[in-house]
Design a protein around this nucleic acid. Structure first.
Lengths: 223, 223
DNA sequence: GAGTGGTCTAGACCACGTT
DNA sequence: ACGTGGTCTAGACCACTCC
């Protein structure tokens, strides 16, 4: 069926035969056809609606799935020594600015951390993190001097929902200072917000040196 | 089962009961358990291996799935008028430089296009595209004066495999000129390579104005 | 109301990897 | 060799949605 779609025998926009017909023509059970079509639907190649049937999608976008690795793993993978420094740690009450970027309520206690991740002693990533202590009270007892908040959160707190934003910008003062940038380099920024069943967990802004950071993805249509 | 994983009742690294046991304890058929576990495996929450059983994954990375929209759609969605200009069009033979970025063979005929996409008359995206004419001979007959190569390729050529790279950089000469940038702004670069069953189709570099471009993703652990 | 996909069952056999 | 997941079958009922 994938071949038929790729060869345009089943063209975009057209509906394909019913499950029962396909099962008969392929000489298999309807459950098998159902599973195959469900996989095609999961891959975004077809759209299925009850009563309306199954139709081949006219793809307008391409999905790209990125794995955002632990910074420590990422650095060690290239054979360099990982370094970590906690720059700032403070507890604040969320103000309107933080409420905007974060999903927290105003007046919530928030733990703010600023950390620097190094590769062979060179600055690699500047991390600015805010943790909602109402959702994650345990974070207040961690000093984060040795273990970074990213790794701590991953092992301590699951999440149910995540949102990422990628962008490029000129470095701000903090970034220029800690990443040791001059004005001839850009920064690649990853922002991430996560929730645990509707409750805000954390907002983090990860800044990377533009000239030495690239994010890769590989996607296959069914594989 | 998702709840049990989230609540750490089934902790990361542990193996979960066999399908048959689960089917009995949940009072359903093994096929139902199998499908549920397969969905958890697709979502990356568990790992399954024959004979070894099913174990909860210790997640080290978080996946983020981005939909990279058609630039025309993206602009029109914000209520602005889409504009398109073809800047350059030439046919070249692939040299070693192109072979490196692209997956083509040296000496293949390549169509090179440079296009500008505008929003309300303002530069929005600079597109540098190379198309392998051996895989896509039809592209040689298109002038791409009216319709951009992205839309043409989407409707004309399917693909089986894609690779994306995101990065941030300072604008180069072309980008500074065509995107009308001064030296106080960065560019957000999307590079994409696609293949059709092993054959290289296209390599494209999309440059965006850093201060006004953000790429969003939203991911849920099972929806 | 009727037709489509969504889901489940109880059973079977197979493929693969560990032992 | 054996135990696990992978896949399939034939049949059934249900839920949604279009007409």
């Amino acid at each position: 069926m994938l071949t038929r779609i790729m060869d345009r025998e089943w063209a975009p926009g057209e509906t394909v035969p019913h499950e029962e017909d396909l099962a008969r023509s392929y000489g298999c059970a309807r459950a098998t056809v159902n599973r195959a079509l469900r996989e095609l639907a999961d891959a975004g190649l077809v759209e299925r609606r009850r009563k309306a049937g199954t139709r081949v999608v006219q793809r307008e976008t391409r999905g790209a799935t990125f794995q955002i690795p632990l910074v420590r793993v990422e650095i060690e993978k290239t054979g360099r020594a990982y370094g970590y420094r906690l720059l700032r740690r403070s507890t604040v009450l969320s103000d309107s600015d933080l409420v905007g970027r974060f999903d927290t309520s105003e007046g919530n206690p928030i733990l703010h951390l600023q950390c620097l991740h190094l590769a062979d002693g060179e600055p690699y990533q500047l991390e600015n993190r805010w943790i909602d202590l109402k959702t994650v009270p345990d974070a207040a007892d961690e000093d984060f001097e040795i273990i970074g908040p990213n790794e701590w959160l991953l092992s301590a707190i699951p999440f149910t929902h995540a949102e990422h934003v990628f962008s490029a910008a000129m470095p701000n003062g903090d970034e220029r200072e800690h990443l040791q940038l001059d004005s001839t380099d850009a920064v690649f920024i990853i922002e991430r917000r996560t929730w645990l069943s509707g409750n805000p967990v954390t907002y983090v802004r990860l800044s990377h040196i533009g000239s030495s950071f690239r994010l890769h993805s590989q996607d296959t249509d069914l594989g």
